[in-house]
Design a protein around this nucleic acid. Structure first.
Length: 584
RNA sequence: GGUCCGGUAGUUCAAUUUGGUUAGAGCACCUGCCUGUCACGCAGGAAGUUGCGAGUUCGAGUCUCGUCCGGACCGCCA
């Protein structure tokens, strides 16, 4: 059973050749006196013909062929009559005149047709994932994904990086996301954790002197799912010694440049644009702004210093922020639509959303009656207003004002078709805050992770104003998605101790959780830093998929189930006994 | 943990607004006819626990409650 060609490989150059093909029956057309079978494999499709005048017996047998049967067909490559050429097919100039065939495996009627451009319930697609994966869009997605792996490995090997695997069973470190735990049979009551990232290991590899490391690695976070979030996901992880931010940013930029050139033949503009976190947040309300469109946020504190509008004046009195978005031609929005925006703003944490319209040179509707003439003039100039604009304004804490407007900016742009679908807008965001205060925990938490180095000039602020300390951290953003993030790490024990102190992790706890890393830093740890790419998200953007599930062969549902194999599942009492686990 | 949308032949949908006869249609499937189709065509047929469980009602696919599943979002995701 050896095929001589794949289904997409044949063309006019093969005329007259005797070939053996294998594949799936994609489609069968029985014309009564003539049967056409489209044979499919992952390389393409080709039409085969069964003609009773050539071989009556084989023709009779071919009547039994049905969709998705796996067959081996022997025949001769022949030219189609001129009028029968199918321009839509790569192999449309030829067909295989079948002389014999074997059914290698008969297929039941599939739960859905293996066709492109048909809508199927995702529940069913996931249950029969192996059938869904036969469809060309998913085939293409996984092909692109494989190409990306190839490009990445090629790039790093050429640049003298070592690919080194790190453990999947590691120590649980409760900082950060919830860990997936794995019970230890040898030590009842103790658990391994699956890595949220190989962070500590790659730092130890730097201490070991492997000054350029990379890995394509699975990471696990036991948090709720989203369209672009799965509990297990793939990172392309990198770490380098004796580097600064710009070295990592250069490597990261070159890599995406190469990927986009080779996969999509898109030449990126270099260098990639950069924004500081503060700028990104105050102009776009996000630490990962989508720069495919404008509609920037404008700070309005100065305009409303003497506002008659109570909400504005009280927000300013309590050191809050007033800012606004301008929706072009938004004055047409219905009351209902505006109410929906207000509700959405509230859902996102704002107390409300003020609005007014600019029409025929003046403000109307919403809170326009509270806006003075002087304010009106300033607003027209500052916001660059045009006739029929809608102004949406939030007044709240710094954090809430910008983040709410940032989210509305995205949703309105999406809804009004403002986002060019074929554009790719890259951006490095730098100078992140090192820490952020957690109300829940009652302490500062590392925004990136606790091994991120603070910026030198901010060190003196660490005790008195920890929130003002900036980190040597950077994210790569593409079309509003964070596709990579990294930092220069702390490489001395003293600095790491200061960091833990700022996080209110006492010495005993630090030693217990990260003692091995602290100790390693004492034995000649080089300055180092790195970055990790979210590979699933990157591929998702490359193939313009709606969901991360479309670029993962076997994904989980939004409730973290695998519908095909029904994981997670119950286990036997014997298995539990062996692990000394009792279910409550 | 929360909010919202959805679940009806194998499948994609309709019937839900206003509870009322036998729950319909396209594709797929099965049978027959058909020698140039490629979304083949024509004729016929089979196909339903309306996710599941309660409740209201003379009567529930339709209304109510619970529950399961899918999806989006909020929280969460160092």
């Amino acid at each position: 059973m050896t095929r001589t060609h794949t289904c997409g490989a044949l063309n006019k150059k093969n005329l007259g050749q005797k070939v053996v093909l294998t594949g799936w029956v994609n489609k069968w057309r029985d014309l009564g006196g003539l049967i056409f079978i489209d044979l499919r494999d992952r390389y393409g499709k080709v039409q085969t013909v069964f003609n009773p005048e050539e071989n009556a017996e084989v023709y009779e047998q071919a009547k039994a062929l049905r969709s998705e049967d796996v067959v081996e067909i022997k025949g001769t490559v022949s030219a189609r009559p001129d009028t029968m050429i199918n321009q839509e097919m790569k192999t449309g100039e030829i067909e295989i005149a079948a002389s014999s065939f074997r059914i290698l495996n008969k297929a039941k009627t599939t739960p859905f047709e293996i066709l492109d451009d048909i809508e199927i319930n995702e529940e069913l697609r996931l249950k029969y994932r192996y059938l869904d994966l036969r469809r060309s869009s998913l085939q293409r997605n996984l092909l692109v994904r494989s190409n990306v792996y190839h490009i990445i490995r090629d790039y790093f090997y050429k640049n003298e990086f070592l690919e080194i695997e790190t453990p999947i069973l590691m120590k649980s470190t409760p900082e950060g996301a919830r860990d997936f735990l794995v019970p230890s049979r040898n030590y009842p009551g103790r658990f391994y954790a699956l890595p949220q990232s190989p962070q500590t290991y790659k730092q130890l590899l730097m201490v070991a002197g492997f000054d350029r490391y990379f890995q394509v690695v699975k990471c696990f976070r036991d948090e709720d799912l989203r369209r672009d979030r799965q509990p297990e996901f793939t990172q392309r992880d990198v770490e380098m010694s004796f580097v600064d931010e710009n070295d990592i940013i250069r490597i990261g930029s070159e890599l995406v440049q190469k990927v986009f050139k080779e996969v999509l033949d898109i030449s990126m503009e270099m260098p990639i644009k950069r924004l500081t976190f503060k700028e990104a947040f105050e102009r776009f309300g996000s630490d990962k702004p989508d720069l495919r469109f404008g509609m920037e946020i404008h700070r309005l504190n100065e305009v409303f210093t003497n506002s008659d509008f109570n909400v504005f004046s009280s927000v300013l009195a309590s050191d809050g922020e007033i800012a606004a978005l301008v929706v072009k031609n938004g004055a047409d929005f219905s009351r209902k639509k505006i109410d929906k925006l207000i509700d959405r703003a509230k859902e996102l944490g704002a107390k409300g959303l003020a609005y007014w319209k600019y029409q025929q040179g003046e403000f109307s509707a919403g809170i326009s009656k509270f806006i003075s003439n002087i304010e009106t003039e300033q607003l027209i100039a500052l916001l660059g207003l045009h006739d029929n604009d809608l102004i949406l304004s939030a007044a709240d804490t710094y954090e809430t004002t910008f983040s709410v407007l940032g989210q509305l900016r995205l949703e309105i742009a999406e809804e009004t078709g403002l986002i060019p679908q074929d554009a790719f807008a890259f951006l490095w965001v730098t100078d992140f805050p090192l820490l952020e205060y957690s109300e829940e925990e009652g302490r500062y938490m590392a925004r990136h992770h606790p091994f991120t180095s603070p910026q030198e000039q901010d060190l003196e602020l660490l005790d008195a104003h920890p929130e003002k300390v900036k980190a040597r951290a950077y994210d790569l953003v593409l079309n509003g998605s964070e596709i990579a993030g990294g930092s220069i790490r702390i490489h001395t024990k003293e600095m790491q101790e200061k960091m833990f102190a700022a996080l209110k992790i006492d010495k005993e706890e630090a030693k217990q959780k990260f003692g091995f890393l602290m100790e390693a830093l004492e034995y000649g740890a080089p300055p180092h830093g790195g970055i990790a790419f979210g590979l699933d998200r990157l591929v998702m953007l490359l193939v313009n998929a709606d969901s991360i599930r479309d670029v993962i062969a076997f994904p989980k549902t939004s409730s973290a189930l695998s519908l095909m194999d029904e994981a997670p599942s119950a286990v036997s009492q014997a298995q539990l006994d062996e692990l000394k686990i009792k279910l409550s």
